[in-house]
């Protein structure tokens, strides 16, 4: 098992916390930034998974073999970076499209949420009415 040094653990925690915080925002731009930051966090984690030599170039001839970084996590992180890059541009386009169609880029409520809220409002209205009736009866 590979372990992580404290600094990196704190950096990772910071990246994930910031990322998830931004992910929970309403504006799609912030969500996008959140995804980007989370992606950086995940890629850093992949790098660190390579062990204590992480961060050195995994090139034959640049260092003795035992001081070389594990190339596999680097390859995986590279692939992940490419994927994040593609998806970031896609989200950017989507945010622009949403802005163009709706005039804002806010993520709206779930359909079920809106239905429940409408029901709740109706129920509350009905409750108020019965209470008013009861009140008027009581004053009479």
């Amino acid at each position: 098992m590979n372990t992580v040094n404290l600094t990196m653990a704190i950096v990772l925690g910071g990246l994930y916390a910031t990322g998830f915080y931004l992910l929970l925002q309403r504006s799609l731009m912030r969500v996008l930034l959140g995804i980007v930051i989370l992606g950086h966090g995940a890629n850093l984690l992949l790098q660190l998974a390579g062990g204590s030599q992480a961060g050195r170039p995994p090139m034959l001839g640049d260092a003795p073999i035992e001081r070389m970084a594990d190339p596999l996590p680097q390859a995986m992180a590279l692939t992940a970076i490419v994927i994040t890059f593609a998806l970031t541009t896609f989200l950017l386009a989507l945010a622009y499209r949403a802005w163009q169609l709706l005039g804002h880029d806010e993520v709206q409520d779930d359909v079920e949420d809106r239905r429940i809220r409408r029901l709740e409002a109706e129920l509350a209205e009905a409750d108020e009415e019965t209470e008013r009736e009861l009140d008027s009866e009581a004053t009479r």
Binding site: M1, N2, T3, V4, G19, L23, L28, V31, I35, L38, G39, G41, A42, N43, L45, L46, L48, A49, G50, L72, P73, M76, A80, I83, L87, F90, L91, L94, R97, A98, L101, L102, V107, Q108, D110
Partner: peptide, 30 residues
Amino acid sequence: VRAGMTYTIVSLSSSVLFLTMIGLVYAATG
């Protein structure tokens, strides 16, 4: 567009979790 956004964001978040899982699995087992 709203539905598409929800789908994309949820899937992307789960993908980040997936990547995190892979990092942890690799750290644990190599």
